[in-house]
Nucleic acid binder design. Structure first.
Lengths: 170, 170
DNA sequence: CAGTTTAAGTCAGCCTTGTTGACATTCCAA
DNA sequence: TTGGAATGTCAACAAGGCTGACTTAAACTG
């Protein structure tokens, strides 16, 4: 739908990548790749008392410093109780700072401390290293396709969040 | 490493997709897309008393009927206790059948029952529908790139498991 | 100004899914 | 026949989701 080739898709070459078998391989590729994707940071985190949820919070606070709790909630797609548990430990451990909003004092704005940035660096270095190797092995055209398919796989709400982050990044 | 363009990669165009910003976008694309990837089957599963772990077991038993518990363990990358809990409920509910091995009677070979296949169909239909839409939107070249990058992102052990499944599928 | 809504935090309790460790059973193979 | 492998079971625990109920403070609105 809305792809500009409605009738061409019913014949020949265009169907080869839409067979159930091809789709199933795509599904399994996602499953196995996601495991690799999280493996390196997970290893670092279990040495400390942290988990993947802490990583996600740290990642997005680093990505958008000063973000509010509510905004983070929407990006992560979890309940505030779930996020709060994670944030509380990160703040208690001095990795995240929570500042009362100046304009709206109900809001809390979140920032990484120096120590938080240090852990963030360790985690993304590990994750980026794998991503870099995969990107390099596959080449620029494959990377473009990779991102195109992933973007099409997101819920529209997440697509918007993704694009917003993408555009904010330099 | 081992990509055939060692020095070319240090200049110009080839670096554009290896900047930290590009890598970070790839990381976030994986995060958001995986959520979409699991969203549809998750919705079906929560209506029943099942979770994602049940889906994974059902998927791979369907994919390789007669697989042993140990084999499934390696593919899923969990402990036998964890898998066993899931398998026990699936067997008790009559979705999975466990047959004692004929050659090696220690082994249990796993099969979906008719009812199991029914649920499997419902789950993969939902997951495939999203994958199909994403593949169609992105086009064949993008899909090829998508799979190339994902494969490069896997641990080598998972890469082997993935390839084995791929080759067994027709 | 009073009442409502919003942002955030907290408490309690529940579920799934992962983990270890200890142990029993069965059965193949040296 | 004995050692080891494959499987299963019990118990205990933790992370990280969830819901529901409630509080506080601030902001908005009629």
């Amino acid at each position: 739908m809305a792809d500009g080739r409605p009738s061409a898709a019913i014949s020949g070459e265009n169907l080869l990548f839409l067979t159930d078998e091809q789709l199933r391989q795509g599904i399994e590729a996602m499953f196995f790749a996601y495991r690799g994707f999280t493996a390196d940071p997970d290893r670092i985190l279990t040495d400390m008392a942290y988990g993947r949820a802490h990583h996600r919070a740290i990642h997005f606070i680093n990505r958008a410093p000063g973000t509010t709790v509510n905004n983070l909630l929407n990006i992560l797609g979890v309940t505030k109780q779930s996020l709060n548990r994670v944030l509380r430990t990160l703040i208690a451990d001095g990795l995240v700072e929570s500042r009362v909003g100046r304009i709206d004092k109900r809001e809390r704005h979140l920032y990484l401390t120096d120590e938080g940035r240090l852990l963030e660096g360790r985690l993304s270095d590990a994750q980026r290293a794998r991503m870099r190797a995969a990107f390099r092995d596959a080449g620029p055209e494959a990377v473009a396709g990779f991102r195109q398919v992933l973007e099409a796989m997101m819920d529209s709400e997440m697509q918007r969040a993704y694009t917003r982050l993408k555009e904010s990044g330099t």
